[in-house]
Every structure is written in C-alpha cells, then in structure tokens.
Amino acid sequence: MALFVSALIIGVSLGTIYGLMAFGMVASYRISKVVNLGQAGIAAFGASVYWWMSSQWGAPLVVSLFGGVLVGGVLGAILGYANLKLANRAKGLVMIFTLTVTLLLFAWVDLIIPAYNITPPSPFGQGGFNFQLTFITYAQIGTFATCIAVVLVTTWVMRMTRFGMFVRAIYDDPDGASTVGIPLGVYVVGVWAVAGGMAGLAGILATSRVQLDSILLLFVMVWGLAGAILGGLESFALAFVGGVSLGVAEGILGGMLGGDLGPGLENLSAILIMAVGVLYAGTKRRHLAHLQT
C-alpha cells in the first residue's frame, strides 16, 4: 500500500506538469480552433527568462516568476496576432506555423542558456519531507497547488466575468459575437496572451523541478497535448484530469512495475493507457460536455 501511495504521489506530481502545459493549448484552441504547438517554445523561453533573471541578475524569485510569465504572455499575444493574420489559412497550416515558432524559440533558448544542464531555482524553495516511501518536495506541492489554482481561477473567469462570457460567445459563434460588437481581434490576442502566460508558468514550474532543457519541454508538451485531448481540447478541467491521469500512469508503471517492463515498454504502456482514455472520451464526448468550463 505504501508503494502504491508513493507511486501515486509521484504520478500526480508528474501529471500536474502535463496539466499545466495543457491549459494554454486548451485556451488557444477554444478561441481559434488551432492546436497551439507554440506552447513548448514559449514555455522554454519563459523558463529561460526566469532562470536568467533569478540566477544571472539576482532578481527576487517572485519578480523573476512575473518576468517569465509576462514574457510568455507577450510571446503568446504576438502568436495570437499572427494567428489572426492567418485566419483565412487552413488550421493545419497555422498549427505547423506554431510548431515552427517553437523550434525557433528553442534555438534562441539554446543560445541563451549554458550548454550544460541547469536547473532554475524553484519559486517554492528547496526541501520537503518524507512521506511513505518517497520524499515530497515543496516544489511538488507548490506546482500542484498552482495547477489547482489556475484551474479554479480559469473556471471562475470563464463563468463569472464579462471577459469569460465574451470568450465563450466567440467560441460558440464567432460571427455572431462579432455582429453584436465583441471585438474579436482583441479577445483572440488576449486569450493567446493568457495561453502564453500559462505556457511560461508551466515552463518555469516544470524546469525548476527537473532541468531547463528545451527538448524536454517539447516532450512535456506532447504529453500535455495527449492529456488535453482527453477533454477534446475544450475543457480546462478535463485537460487537468487527462494530464494527471497520464502522470499517474507513468508514476505507477515506473514506480511499481518499472523493473518488470522491458526497454521502452514503460512509456508505451502509459501511451496505451492514455489512448484508451482518449478513445473513451471521444465516444462519450456528449456526456462529458457538461464538465466544460
């Protein structure tokens, strides 16, 4: 039991990273129907800004965190503006464009950070405590709490504010929303900016737990995308659930069965579990619709 609980904690901790990455993709997809693969690049760039400010300039962690998220937001806004300009193009083309942005940002990040592995300081400090068979760090708790907070705030904004109402209106009927005077462009850029900020936050929280490595964030984005697809890329809550589910699958498989699985089977098993989840969600989409935020 202790082993299972420990593996579960590790899995949830892993899953929160995926969930954070999925949030931005859900946001930009909802407003533009574009799978935003620029999230990984923005995450890497936001994390490198955070690392640069905190470790090189000596700025306070909170200020650095704000800087990284802000830069992510600006990059997201630029990407949103470009998306507006490409509105008449095929969505697939725009998606590839966002992937190109990620690769360009990766190249930029690789120029900024040292060639050897670095780990930015955690905004939640070092240390932690033993629990069951594992050691829970403050960074894990902070990341999990932040993830929950983002879900709650996003849900509240979408349901209770004028901004959220307009975004939902655009999501349901862009032409109709435009007809009633909702400034489409402003809201699209705004939502992409928020998505960029989320990516920056995800990058900072993920890299301070592991290491600042752009290709690592690309894989985190892929896992996050898999989680987001569980909710049809439309629900923040389901994206969170999907990401956590994937992380739990990895944690339990690696922690409890890692030695029994052959090379590569650990990841493959997690992907299979995820695929089953996605297929299930696809067939039951209508039943999950009420969970959309």
Binding site: L3, I10, S13, L14, L133, F219, G251
Partner: peptide, 12 residues
C-alpha cells in the same frame, strides 16, 4: 522529465 518513480522502484 522525471526519475522519481525509478528512485522509488530502486528503493523498494
């Protein structure tokens, strides 16, 4: 992205 689960596996 993380090796915590493998540390757990080795600990066990």
């Amino acid at each position: 992205p993380d090796e915590s689960q493998h540390v757990l596996s080795m600990r066990v």
